[in-house]
């Protein structure tokens, strides 16, 4: 387990982390998710020992490592821009940690070959990093981090520098890798879709604090704060509450709790249909329905309809 307790960090006058506590279960894949400047990368670097916290402790597998150098934390770290050793071949990159540990050559060769097979770079061992694509470099960096059998694998925006297609491939690939290797993994990302897709747990961070920690379903379906609700997807304002546009129900007939509204505009966006509504003096409402629902509803601009919110757990009451 990774236990972060009361960690604070400031750079000059900027408070990057403010009394952060977090328990990451063994064997899980956890995403630190938040906008840039939320402190997620700093938290990851503090777990790795690459930064020192001003206050608080970091415990890895029961051992307080707050004052332990990164060399002795038994971690694997993957950087956004790969941090490939440019003057070494792929083989030497992956073997680096084992060479430092002075393992016998035969053992190193076997381990490197095994890992290159796992990351799909079996034929590339004599290439140099500049002969690889971005995705290949990042897989090499992953193999390099895994070579030393780390207790914890830390990934800092690992797919951030890659284009969308490669990113999606690597995401699925990382998920399968984690299913096979089972090393406790922490992934920093600002992409909510990536976090929801890959991670078993998500810690949502904002302004140096953790807003909520839970499974993707928990944070999506029962957001603890307005920030969480807004960060994970589009929101609509409805009767003093923030709700998901797809949780708004538009009907021809009156239902309990519904309010009357007039359709102002309908946009067909492929599988979803967006209905813009105005209800009296309130701010315009945007509801999102499926194509099937829209066809069933058969509304046109100018029609009078009833709108109600479906899933109250996933909404947040607006203050003031």
């Amino acid at each position: 387990m990774i236990s972060v307790c009361g960690v604070s960090k400031r750079y000059g006058s900027a408070q990057i982390l403010n009394d952060v506590s977090l328990d990451i279960p063994d064997g899980s894949l956890t995403a630190l998710l938040g906008p840039s400047g939320s402190g997620k990368t700093s938290l990851l670097r503090i777990i790795a020992g690459l930064e020192e916290p001003d206050a608080g402790t970091v415990v890895l597998s029961g051992e307080n490592v707050t004052a332990v150098a990164p060399q002795r934390r038994n971690i694997g770290f993957v950087f956004q821009h790969y941090a490939a050793f440019k003057h070494m071949t792929v083989r030497d990159n992956v073997a680096f940690g084992l060479t430092i540990r002075k393992r016998p050559r035969r053992e190193i060769d076997a381990r490197v070959n095994e890992l290159l097979g796992i990351v799909g770079l079996a034929g590339y061992s004599h290439r140099y990093p500049n002969q690889l694509s971005g995705g290949q470099r990042q897989r090499m960096a992953l193999a390099r981090a895994l070579a030393v059998d780390p207790k914890v694998l830390l990934l800092d925006e690992p797919f951030g520098a890659l284009d969308a297609k490669v990113r999606e491939d690597l995401r699925g690939w990382l998920r399968r890798l984690h299913e096979n290797v089972h090393v406790t993994t922490v992934l920093v990302t600002h992409d909510q879709e990536e976090a929801m897709d890959v991670a078993g747990h998500i810690a949502l961070m904002n302004a140096g604090r953790i807003e909520q920690f839970g499974t993707p379903r928990e944070v999506y379906e029962a957001p603890a704060t307005e920030f969480v609700l807004r960060f994970l997807g589009p929101v609509a304002e409805f009767c003093g509450r923030l709700v998901r546009p797809h949780d708004l129900r538009v009907t021809r007939d009156h239902t309990p709790g519904a309010i009357a509204a007039r359709v102002t505009r309908i946009s067909h966006l492929g599988f979803e249909v967006r209905i813009e509504l105005s209800a009296g003096d309130a701010a315009p409402i945007t509801a999102q329905v499926t194509r099937g629902e829209a066809r069933h509803l058969e509304v046109n601009p100018g029609d009078e309809v009833w709108v109600s919110a479906e899933d109250v757990a996933a909404s947040i009451r607006l203050v003031g």
């Binding site: 990164p70 770290f77 430092i100 540990r101």
Partner: peptide, 15 residues
């Protein structure tokens, strides 16, 4: 070259 390669080496156990 930046510090990342050096930091990567540190996390891999290099003094």
């Amino acid at each position: 070259i930046g510090e990342e390669q050096e930091q990567a080496a540190a996390t891999l156990g290099a003094s």
